[in-house]
């Protein structure tokens, strides 16, 4: 099946690329014409992107897609989701199968410059960690020499893992399984001593998939920087801009204290930054190629960054803001000025 999928993807990419000989701005028109945003998400990572009991997708990554849909199409619900594995994601984006990839994807130089992607900012600052069973009796990553490690293929995680063990002069045996559900199942069955991915992913897996979360512990070492963010295919700057500024608008809204509850009142605010953001003083929407209410709709329908974080990451995984607090609170989230 895998083989076929990839062959089909290959054939499709050729066909889609051929069909989609784009000029700048074509993505915007195309998405408007079809009436929804095609969004590539994780197959299931609660807190970031996972379908809830009603089959509705929710999470921090999902909210980025919803924000873009709200800005461009006027309705945050006009999103269709394509769950994909780590190994499928870039091909899908390059071939035009999805419009935007919002799937806890690390921004790196190679991906930005060589894979034909454009990143739209960072919606989660993360780092790679290790999850081990308590029974293993390990308290530091430096004690992991000789361990068997479960990891997903095609990720920065896989590369950092090799780098880390090499740097520490330790050996490991990787078990590389394509689907995250199969990977975690193998880990919880004892196939591996260690499961490694971004710390947020570890928290999500431990919290939602472990038979008993208390039997597992996340080691204190964070071995890498993983700035996660949405990405689009290179070559259409207008579309990339819209994605970038939809995310920025959410952070800016939090900085300015605008949230989904008070956004209507805030329209009467005297603060010129708020007036610009909400389109009371026009210009921003026009520059992006959407109407002036774009950010208003994002905040009204999706909420600001803090709201999205709280209802997804904090509520489901119990993770505090940490690095993802606003810069004014000692974190790294810093909106580029909307002006």
């Amino acid at each position: 099946m895998k083989m076929k999928t990839i062959l089909a993807a290959g054939a499709m990419s050729v066909a889609a690329i051929a069909a989609n000989n784009a000029h700048a701005g074509a993505a915007l028109d195309g998405i408007k014409a079809k009436g929804f945003v095609q969004c590539g998400v994780n197959t299931g990572l609660p807190g970031f992107s996972a379908a809830n009991a009603e089959g509705k997708w929710e999470g921090l990554d999902v909210d980025v897609c919803r924000a873009v849909a709200a800005a461009l199409l006027g309705d945050a619900e006009k999103v269709q989701y394509t769950p994909m594995t780590a190994a499928q994601r870039f091909t899908a984006l390059q071939s035009g199968e999805i419009d935007i990839l919002s799937r806890n994807t690390t921004w790196t130089l190679t991906r930005d410059a060589k894979l034909g992607l454009t990143f739209g900012g960072v919606n989660y600052y993360d780092g790679q960690g290790f999850l081990v069973p308590k029974a293993l009796g390990v308290s530091h990553a430096t004690e992991l020499d000789g361990a068997t490690v479960c990891v997903e293929p095609g990720t920065t995680t896989e590369l950092n893992l090799a780098d880390y063990f090499r740097a520490k002069g330790m050996s490991f045996e990787p078990v590389v399984i394509e689907n995250i559900n199969e990977t975690t199942a193998a880990f919880f069955a004892g196939r591996c001593d260690v499961y490694t991915t971004d710390a947020s992913g570890l928290a999500s897996v431990r919290q939602t998939m472990a038979p008993n979360p208390d039997d597992y512990v996340i080691l204190p070492e964070i071995i890498s920087k993983e700035p996660l963010g949405p990405a689009v295919a290179q070559g259409d700057d207008q579309w990339a801009d819209l994605v970038r500024w939809s995310l920025m608008a959410m952070v800016e809204a939090e900085e300015l204290g605008v949230n989904s509850g008070n956004v209507d009142d805030m329209k009467k605010s005297e603060n010129p930054a708020i007036q610009r953001l909400l389109g009371v003083s026009p210009g921003m929407g026009e520059a992006l190629g959407v109407d002036e209410e774009w950010a208003y709709r994002i905040i009204k329908q999706v909420g600001n960054y803090g709201e999205s974080y709280k209802s997804n990451v904090t509520a489901k995984l119990g993770l505090e803001r940490g690095l993802n607090a606003l810069w004014t609170d000692g974190g790294l989230q810093y909106a580029i000025p909307v002006r």
Binding site: I6, A86, A87, F90, T110, K114, P153, G154, E178
Partner: peptide, 19 residues
């Protein structure tokens, strides 16, 4: 699908890391 590092598995990873 079950993590055996055959040609497809390695190619997939390669494709993903190099684009």
């Amino acid at each position: 699908a079950v993590g055996y590092p055959d040609l497809v598995s390695v190619s997939n990873t390669t494709m993903n890391q190099t684009g």
